[in-house]
Design a protein around this nucleic acid. Structure first.
Lengths: 258, 258
DNA sequence: AATTGTGAAACTTTTCACAGCG
DNA sequence: CGCTGTGAAAAGTTTCACAATT
């Protein structure tokens, strides 16, 4: 009965105002939230294709590799005023650039991470963040055993320095990997520091002003959703045992892990 | 041009067959995917409320603390045939139990984790997974430096043992925290082991048979979505006033840090 | 001939608003 | 009276299917 009410603008909420749009009389239609997340996937896949030497790609191909259907992909790309070539497909390099621009990835965003315990430490050490372009430039914690240590060459500072350090480093995105009960206070400090985008790993719903975007990664919820599916199938698994069906031909690959 | 096509049943895909439903006549209405994820949140919040000594809670209260609006919460609960008391609210303990049952949390699910590198190590070390009920009972990797070590008292085994070890341990949920290029092979092995639910942290789209549920957590995508908002907001914060109320959103549990 | 871009249809999810119950 | 449960409307998202374009 004492828990604070909370708001958040995570996952699928409000539509989104367009990015680059330089012109004047711009009222360009917003890009749907669901689309934005997929654009990021397309961008990653395009990178892989480019590495493989592809110069063009059809919506059919790109969609297949991205795990969506081609109509959806084309609709998604139509939101960014795309420049595919009918009868041919998309120029990989051009599309890549276009997506980077729209996603605001042409300028790297400085990221601050608060909470370098178990998970936070891993996140801090996870250099590059898959797609790169998101340098973690500031680390914070309150644990005296952690404050002062270096992770990936970055010193962990005390959380009380968040506002000052974030402003100095020009941080635009904050990640919260603290225990739940500390999350709101940390969030408030990040907001105070001028951060408008927060990725929250703590199992807590954050309350933020409406111009701050929060996304959350909630491992327990993910597992529970999976458990739901397991339970739902539980007694009914009898069908189609588990044939060694691997639909696509090529596959294999050694398995590095670290 | 050599990348395999992929399908994925992650986020919001097929509707879902009901859980506990013991009766004969099956076919009860499916619970919407979006709802399932929120039920997990409500369950966590109820736990906090129960700890705080609350015996009943209104949809308004529970919704506020969960970061959603009350109509949505009531609609969500209506899918599980709820038993609120008009004029009063919900009995906290009853609702908790009901949610646990529906989410299949009354029996804990054994979880296997493949890839105990940077991120995987943190996941393995995080005992309890927020909501608990998801014991990590098997760890795998291919790195000789990692195979054989103990994490939280569990020995890391070679990935080649996945099928055997998973069957022995009765694993029902697999987590993949390997590099992208290893993910599909690992996934295939998990599926072969009879695992029907997979949480994928690798930046790759997994191809699975349709009776396997995959959810993915993609940190790079999350950051890119946030970067999009940072880039887009700059000049255009044309919001629609500030409603006197909690907006909505979602939340979840995740991983503590220190 | 192949493939994009897109209106319109289908479907899903959210919100509204209120009847009905305790 | 206060609050739940829900039908119906609205909003958002996906899919279809085809005319337009290279």
């Amino acid at each position: 009965m004492t828990l604070p009410p909370q708001a958040d603008s995570s996952s699928a909420d409000h539509p989104v105002t367009p990015a680059g749009a330089p012109g004047v009389g711009r009222v360009a239609k917003a890009i749907p939230e669901a689309t934005v997340a997929r654009l990021a996937v397309y961008l990653r896949v395009l990178g892989q294709l480019a590495e493989g030497g592809a110069e063009t790609v059809s919506s059919e191909e790109l969609a297949a590799v991205s795990g969506v259907n081609s109509a959806k992909l084309r609709k998604d790309l139509s939101h960014i005023g795309t420049h595919g070539i009918r009868g041919v497909g998309y120029d990989v390099a051009v599309l890549q650039q276009e997506l980077e621009r729209v996603l605001g990835q042409d300028h790297p965003q400085a990221v601050a991470l608060v909470g370098v315990g178990n998970l936070g430490h891993a996140l801090a050490g996870y250099g590059g963040f898959g797609g790169r372009g998101f340098p973690v430039t500031a680390l914070f914690d309150v644990d005296p055993d952690l404050v002062g240590i270096l992770i990936n060459g970055i010193e962990v500072r005390h959380a009380r320095d968040i506002p000052q350090a974030c402003r100095e480093a020009g941080v635009t995105i904050g990640m919260i990997a603290t225990p739940a009960q500390a999350a709101q206070a940390v969030c408030d400090q990040l907001v105070e520091s001028g951060v408008h985008a927060i990725l929250n790993f703590a199992p807590a719903v954050l309350q933020v002003p409406e111009d701050v975007e929060v996304r959350k990664v909630d491992l327990a919820v993910e597992l529970q959703v999976l458990a739901f599916h397991v339970a739902g199938r539980g007694g009914i698994t009898d069908h189609v045992a588990t044939p060694p069906q691997v639909v696509n031909g090529r596959n294999g690959s050694a398995v590095p892990a670290s």
